[in-house]
Amino acid sequence: MTKPLEVLLLDDEPIVGRRLKPALDKIGCRVEVFQSPTEAAARIDEKEFDIVVTDIRMEEMDGIQVLEHVQKTWPRTKVIMITGYAKVDLAREAMGKGVFDFIAKPFKPADLRRIIFRAAEALGSPIDSSLLNDEPVAQ
């Protein structure tokens, strides 16, 4: 049996974690959900996640700071950014700093699963592609 993909999901809106966790569980990810960036950062210090999915606009720490923290601690970890305030400048800034992908809210859980699938491939731990069925649930 292949090792499950370890995913940290950080968004200050609780509904995002509630909706996305089951969608990622379905494709065999082991997901830890956080609403506080500082708590997420503390957990990142303790554990190497394969993928970190983070919101950008948050109190205490923004998504770019989370990205920098992950890169400093675990350079292999892929970071995916999600935001409701997507703009071309922000997307380029995130990409320039090394984010794996950037997606604007609202999106379907299936959209995130496709990105996770690509990230898993890049990490050398591919996910079974038959698990990537679309769902009409909007986030």
Binding site: A86, V88, A91, R92, E93, M95, D101, F102, I103, R114
Partner: peptide, 14 residues
């Protein structure tokens, strides 16, 4: 080569 101009999910959707 600039990473800033790489394709991403957001830009393809735009």
């Amino acid at each position: 080569e600039y990473r800033k101009f790489q394709v991403m999910t957001y830009s393809m959707k735009c």
